[in-house]
Measured scan of single mutants.
Amino acid sequence: MASQGTKRSYEQMETDGERQNATEIRASVGKMIGGIGRFYIQMCTELKLSDYEGRLIQNSLTIERMVLSAFDERRNKYLEEHPSAGKDPKKTGGPIYRRVNGKWMRELILYDKEEIRRIWRQANNGDDATAGLTHMMIWHSNLNDATYQRTRALVRTGMDPRMCSLMQGSTLPRRSGAAGAAVKGVGTMVMELVRMIKRGINDRNFWRGENGRKTRIAYERMCNILKGKFQTAAQKAMMDQVRESRNPGNAEFEDLTFLARSALILRGSVAHKSCLPACVYGPAVASGYDFEREGYSLVGIDPFRLLQNSQVYSLIRPNENPAHKSQLVWMACHSAAFEDLRVLSFIKGTKVLPRGKLSTRGVQIASNENMETMESSTLELRSRYWAIRTRSGGNTNQQRASAGQISIQPTFSVQRNLPFDRTTIMAAFNGNTEGRTSDMRTEIIRMMESARPEDVSFQGRGVFELSDEKAASPIVPSFDMSNEGSYFFGDNAEEYDN
Results as ranks from 00 to 15, higher is better:
311 Q>L: 01
477 P>D: 03
226 L>I: 11
423 T>Y: 02
368 N>C: 14
383 S>I: 10
112 D>L: 05
432 N>A: 08
373 T>F: 08
369 E>N: 09
148 Y>H: 11
264 L>Q: 06
274 S>A: 08
102 G>Q: 01
293 R>C: 12
380 E>M: 13
418 L>R: 00
432 N>F: 11
312 V>C: 08
296 Y>T: 04
125 N>M: 13
21 N>C: 10
141 S>Q: 03
252 E>V: 06
75 R>N: 07
175 R>W: 11
287 S>P: 00
63 I>F: 15
416 R>A: 01
192 E>C: 08
130 T>P: 15
390 T>E: 01
424 T>R: 04
480 D>F: 04
167 M>S: 09
334 H>Q: 15
27 A>M: 05
15 T>F: 00
362 G>R: 12
375 E>R: 03
165 S>Y: 14
285 V>F: 00
298 L>G: 04
70 A>W: 04
292 E>W: 05
193 L>M: 13
235 Q>D: 05
317 R>G: 08
130 T>A: 11
128 D>H: 14
313 Y>V: 12
177 G>S: 11
132 G>H: 02
460 G>C: 05
362 G>C: 07
373 T>D: 06
40 Y>N: 10
397 N>W: 00
448 M>W: 03
417 N>G: 13
410 P>D: 03
374 M>K: 14
211 N>F: 14
242 V>C: 14
104 W>M: 13
308 Q>P: 05
271 A>N: 15
400 R>T: 14
483 N>K: 13
2 A>R: 00
489 F>T: 02
103 K>W: 07
223 C>D: 06
246 R>A: 01
70 A>P: 09
174 R>C: 02
28 S>T: 09
234 A>F: 02
448 M>T: 15
185 G>S: 09
471 A>T: 14
295 G>H: 07
353 L>P: 00
349 G>A: 15
208 R>L: 04
487 Y>K: 02
316 I>Q: 12
24 E>D: 13
307 L>M: 08
156 R>F: 05
248 P>C: 06
421 D>Q: 04
192 E>K: 11
30 G>K: 08
258 F>N: 03
493 A>V: 12
270 V>E: 00
169 G>C: 15
307 L>E: 03
311 Q>E: 03
477 P>L: 08
379 L>G: 00
